[in-house]
Nucleic acid binder design. Structure first.
Length: 949
RNA sequence: AGGACUAUAGCUCAGUUGGUUAGAGCGCUACCUUGACAUGGUAGAGGUCGGCAGUUCGAAUCUGCCUAGUCCUACCA
């Protein structure tokens, strides 16, 4: 073994070895256990969120594989419609100065495929670096041929089942990307704006209660007045009740529009009068539907004012009209039009006032532009009928959320779900399988030929729908689409439903909910009942930076998991964080921050340390502040394991470690560590079973560091270095050293695959194992009768003595190099027996010169005192210890004891406590009181003794 | 507006059904190169568990209210 732990040197080769030997391939035997990876964007790169989730998944898969399940971890990537298309558009623009329209659809798509081929390997390479044991042989892509078939099949079935429809509806329109987007892709944030109060003149000489011949409407979007088709008031609003049914003469436009009553209107807000523009606002649209209002669209695809408005009835049917838009606004961008209209109203004296007002601006999450509600022809999924079974599946436990609280979020959304707009006016994606004839009638089918045959269309002209499907439509099929659906393949029969989905809460709606709906509708068990996509949803938190801020490129606080693994120089880190920025003006600040946080770049911590850290932080499913201190500590933990293994091998390689079956004699320490190992196995197993990766990590850390390394390795030395030790004793200790190490490695393997494999390969012959890889070995099990309570109690006695001495040494500043004589006084017979049995442990670990048992009645010299139960452990002060220092130490100890005694007494003198608390609790308190009192008395005597001189 | 979550040591976090002397890692202090390990060892300091009230013999843990923060959903034109 190399002298020092170097993750880089060991991690490279093992992954390749595992993959080449097909260890990731499902074994085909044992009970199936399957996970699908949430497909990352094919052109993306791995971020901390991926690293986190993939670590969790790999830990589960490795655990189950070692538990002899038939494990499938399905891998693949997503085509990520908008994101990828935008990226390639930018690239083409930068490199060739062309837009996608310059290229045309086919050529542009060629470019996207080229880019996919070029960069698609990036993310899979990174997955390999993380140690993800996915089945590469089954790697899929959401736009591969199989998915093409699956998506078509899904669309057609949903259409035929009446769950997909096409219609002219108000949708979120992105004026930059020129596509509809779903509600979920719109993010609303508070922005400063204004509320314009505009006078709308009453027609036909009507007046308000106070004699005005106009009413005032308040709006945040004055420019949409061009499409107003009503003004609404609350039916019970006394100010305006009498005007309901009257008309407004729309300023600048001259259109006569009715005043209607609708209790949607909030009397308190603004003036209590609302202008209604059904074609440009979702609430107005709904009101228009209720009141049969005409819809007048005044905006084009760029959100600029049309020359001629489009007028529709409530069904979305275009109607003949003579509406016009004042020439002054035609062709103006929506904001320019707003300025013009406001100025013109002001000129007419019809602008009452302008108030400051914060509003939620709805922005497209990709383009960042304020989206525009726009009337367009789109395809929709009727979600209500799909949502019902999907809700039921979670209610009745067929699907379980971990942590459970996410169910609420899921239910809340599913019970109020809106129809899903699935068509996108993009080029990169699954083209909608619908064909139109010249009259605009559409036919849904698998291909043009299929459609012709199916609908008996003969030789008429057909053209396919130009639009593609929302990316989430195809990823909604991920669990079964990847396994060969619509064919009922062996894989589907065996591995579907999958066992657990590991994902972030941010895509519960985008993906998880839709996956459940689509899967339950399309996938059936043999008895015809719905299949769920997965039985458990483990929801992870978000990884944030050390300040709790979201990691983002524009903030320059992104940590790249690969940098944590491999390390990175300050220069490279700066280049990475400030290069190729969307907002170059931020570069300077980021540069400064980065220099401050990472003056020397980042150290290489290795994959195992990163994975272990991510596991140890994976507690409640809440967000995680990623603290570099943790990964550094865990790198040191890896180093610790490495050095411990080095010690074990040094003492056991080429030695008889009992692997040949010869008799062994186990020391107390041997029996103790074996017992502790069992308890650790129990803890780790139950932690992993309940998705508490943090508890599993903690149990491993504390066992390996604080028990195996800190105590057991030290306790092995007195045996191994004892010239008089018998072969049985030597064998016993060597056997325990290697067995416990080997078990601990297997126990830790799912979390830290590389270092455990590297060391295991060297240790395996010493425990008589011949398997090719630790990842194929059996996972340790908990065996209750291997817990040795007596050994644990006895060793605690040994530890107490040693710690008592160390405490005196530390507090009294006695050099660790100085061997000291030790006296035992007032002990029981059992203490004496323990002393004799463990003399060598005490001498070695407490660095003692001598150990003397004082018989009862024999006076001890003036000493510093430590207590182990009732027994006094004495370090004679002569020449070693300063009297005042010992007095101070004793006084501190006494103060602590007296505090405890007071508390115990308080409790026990409370009759209510004694009467009501369970007897065993009361007894325990009494016992603790007695112990504390005895200890205090002893220390008090010591104090008196010292003070007497 | 509705909902969820969080508040424990200087920092990042554990603390299962109410009963511990409230724990870990990092950081801090002192001492130490002792034959696995200075990416180390030993010892130590540090917390009235956000606040107030309640339930209980007993509350970090249960209930209510309050404060601070994070997030989600829906929105006022």
């Amino acid at each position: 073994m190399d002298k020092t732990y170097n993750p880089h040197a060991i991690e490279q080769q093992w992954y390749q070895h595992w993959e080449e030997n097909s260890y990731f391939t499902p074994s085909g035997t044992g009970s199936p256990y399957s996970i699908v990876i949430p497909p990352p964007n094919v052109t993306g790169s791995l971020h901390m969120g991926h690293a986190f989730q993939d670590t969790i998944m790999d830990t589960l898969i490795r655990l189950k594989r070692m538990q002899q399940h038939d494990t499938l971890w399905q891998v693949g990537t997503d085509h990520a419609g908008i994101a990828t298309q935008m990226l390639v558009e930018r690239k083409v623009q930068a490199e060739e100065g062309l837009t996608r329209h310059d290229l045309g659809r086919d050529k542009f798509l060629d470019k996207v495929w080229e880019w996919k081929e070029e960069s698609g390997g990036n993310i899979t390479r990174q997955l390999r670096r993380l140690g993800a044991s996915v089945d590469w042989d089954r790697e899929r892509f959401t736009m591969d041929d199989g998915f093409y078939t699956a998506v078509q099949e899904a669309f057609i079935r949903l259409y035929e089942d009446g769950l997909i429809y096409r219609g002219k509806r108000l949708v979120n329109w992105d004026p930059k990307l020129h596509t509809a987007i779903s509600d979920l892709e719109v993010v609303s944030e508070d922005e400063a704006g204004h509320l314009w109060h505009m006078r709308y003149p009453l027609a036909d000489g009507a007046t308000t209660a106070n004699g005005d011949n106009y009413i005032v409407v308040a709006t945040t979007r004055p420019e949409t007045m061009l499409g107003d088709t009503a003004v609404a008031v609350h039916p019970e609003d006394e100010r305006y009740q009498h005007l309901v049914g009257q008309f407004i003469e729309l300023p600048l436009v001259g259109r006569r529009i009715p005043i209607i009553a609708d209790d949607y209107v909030d009397q308190e807000f603004g003036t209590g009068c609302v202008k209604i523009t059904p074609a440009h606002d979702f609430n107005d649209y709904a009101m228009g539907q209720r009141h049969g209002l005409t819809m007048i669209n005044v905006l084009d695809q760029d959100a600029a004012i049309l020359a001629t408005p489009e007028v529709y009835n409530t069904e979305g049917k275009s109607i003949e009209h003579s509406e016009t838009i004042p020439a002054a606004y035609q062709g103006l961008d929506r904001y320019a039009a707003r300025d013009g209209i406001v100025a013109d109203l002001q000129g007419l004296g019809q602008l009452e006032k302008i108030e400051d007002h914060t509003l939620k601006a709805p922005r497209g999450d990709r383009s960042g532009l304020v989206i525009e509600p726009l009337l367009t022809d789109q395809w929709f999924v009727s979600t209500k009928p799909l949502a019902e079974p999907a809700i039921a599946a979670v209610e009745d436990g067929r699907i379980e959320f971990v942590p459970k609280q996410w169910e609420n979020t899921y239910f809340a959304w599913m019970r109020d779900i809106q129809d899903w707009c699935i068509s996108r006016q993009l080029w990169w994606g699954h083209r909608i399988p619908a064909w139109y004839d010249d009259a605009g009638k559409f036919y849904v089918g698998r291909s043009e030929a299929d459609v012709r045959a199916k609908y008996n269309l003969g030789d008429i002209n057909l053209r396919q729908d130009e639009d593609v499907l929302d990316t989430w439509f195809s990823s909604g099929l991920w669990t079964f689409g990847t396994m060969g659906w619509p064919d009922m393949t062996e894989a589907l029969k065996r591995y579907h439903p999958t066992d657990v989905l590991v994902t972030g809460f941010d895509i519960i709606f985008f993906w998880v909910a839709r996956m459940i709906m689509m899967t339950m509708h399309l996938m059936k068990h043999e008895d015809g009942s719905d299949q769920v996509p997965f039985k458990t949803i483990y929801v992870t938190g978000l990884i944030r930076d050390e300040n709790g801020d979201k990691m983002s490129k524009s903030k320059g606080n992104v940590l790249d998991p690969l940098d944590l693994i491999d390390g990175i120089s300050l220069e490279d880190l700066l280049a990475k964080r400030t290069g190729n920025m969307m907002q170059p003006q931020l570069a300077k600040k980021i540069d400064k921050q980065t220099r401050k946080h990472f003056p020397e770049g980042m150290a290489a911590y290795g994959t195992d340390a990163l994975r272990f850290t991510l596991c140890s932080l994976a507690s409640t499913g809440r967000d995680i502040k990623f603290d570099l201190g943790r990964i550094e500590g865990n790198r040191n933990f890896c180093n610790k394991i490495w050095n411990a293994a080095s010690y074990v091998l040094m003492n056991c390689e080429d030695q008889d470690c009992g692997q040949h079956g010869d008799a062994v004699e186990l020391s107390l320490a041997d029996r103790w560590i074996l017992s502790r190992l069992q308890r650790t196995q129990q803890k780790v197993l139950s932690a992993l079973d309940s998705y508490r990766f943090d508890h599993a990590a903690e149990a491993l850390y504390s066992f390996i560091c604080n028990e195996y390394c800190a105590w057991y390795l030290e306790l092995s030395k007195p045996v191994l270095w004892d010239d008089n030790a018998s072969p049985e004793q030597l064998r016993g200790t060597r056997q325990t050293l290697v067995q416990v190490l080997e078990s601990a490695l297997r126990l830790a393997h799912p979390l830290m695959p590389y270092i455990t494999e590297e060391i295991w390969q060297k240790v395996k012959p010493l425990v008589g194992k011949t398997g090719p890889s630790i990842m194929l070995e059996a996972y340790p099990e908990f065996t209750a009768d291997m817990v040795d309570e007596q050994a644990e109690a006895d060793l605690n006695w040994v530890r107490d003595v040693i710690e008592g001495v160390r405490n005196i040494r530390g507090e009294m500043n006695i050099s660790p190099a100085k061997p000291i004589p030790l006296l035992f006084s007032k002990g029981q017979e059992s203490d004496q027996a323990k002393l004799e049995a463990n003399r060598s442990f005490l001498i070695k670990l407490a660095k003692l010169e001598s150990v003397t048992w004082l018989p009862a009645g024999e006076e001890a010299p003036l000493s510093a005192t430590a207590l182990v139960g009732q027994m006094e452990v004495l370090v004679p002060m002569a020449g070693l210890i300063d009297k005042d220092a010992e007095l101070a130490r004793l006084t501190k100890e006494l103060a602590k004891l007296n505090g405890e005694i007071k508390r115990f007494n308080g409790k026990l003198s409370n009759a209510k406590f004694v009467d009501n608390a369970p007897a065993e609790v009361v007894d325990k308190e009494r016992e603790k009181l007695a112990e504390a009192e005895a200890a205090a008395a002893t220390l008090q005597q010591q104090v008196a003794k010292i003070e007497a001189i």
